[in-house]
């Protein structure tokens, strides 16, 4: 799997993706297994990715995913059921929590941000 700390270079180098997220101003939690990352997005750019552990972390929404499921998601051609975050919600390997408004209002943007963590062939 790609290190989430590589998100800034991968997202911010994609001008059209940044444009699509131009109204996004939030911090969300990506938790893979026990390892959390606080990801700060401002105007569509990933400003920072802070790995846990945290003391009194604040975030709008959380994506909590099982480690093995995330490893499969990050494959270049994931198996059915691991190829999309909502697929993983359906099969209960991923949970969405908190105030999901920023996520759902910008769902295509966030899906494409997370796809940046996918290995390329």
């Amino acid at each position: 799997m790609q290190d989430p700390q590589r998100l800034p270079e991968r997202v911010n180098g994609d001008g059209w993706l940044v444009h699509r997220g131009r109204f996004v101003d939030t911090t969300f939690l990506l938790e893979v297994g026990d390892q959390g990352y606080l990801i700060r997005i401002l105007d569509g750019r990933v400003e920072s990715v802070r790995p846990g552990p945290f003391v009194m972390a604040r975030w709008s929404f959380a994506i909590r995913v099982q480690e093995e499921a995330w490893a499969e998601y990050c494959q270049p051609y994931p198996k059915p059921g691991y190829h999309d975050i909502l697929a993983m919600v359906k099969f209960k390997t991923l949970k969405l929590e908190g105030d999901q408004h920023p996520l759902m209002a910008n769902l295509l943007y966030f899906k494409d941000v997370l796809v940046k963590l996918r290995e390329t062939i």
Binding site: H83, D84, L86, M104, A105, L107, L108, K111
Partner: peptide, 18 residues
Amino acid sequence: DVQGGETCAGIVSGLVGP
């Protein structure tokens, strides 16, 4: 408070096969 078309498309985007 969310743009319906884009959110509906976001909901189904993963339903399109690779």
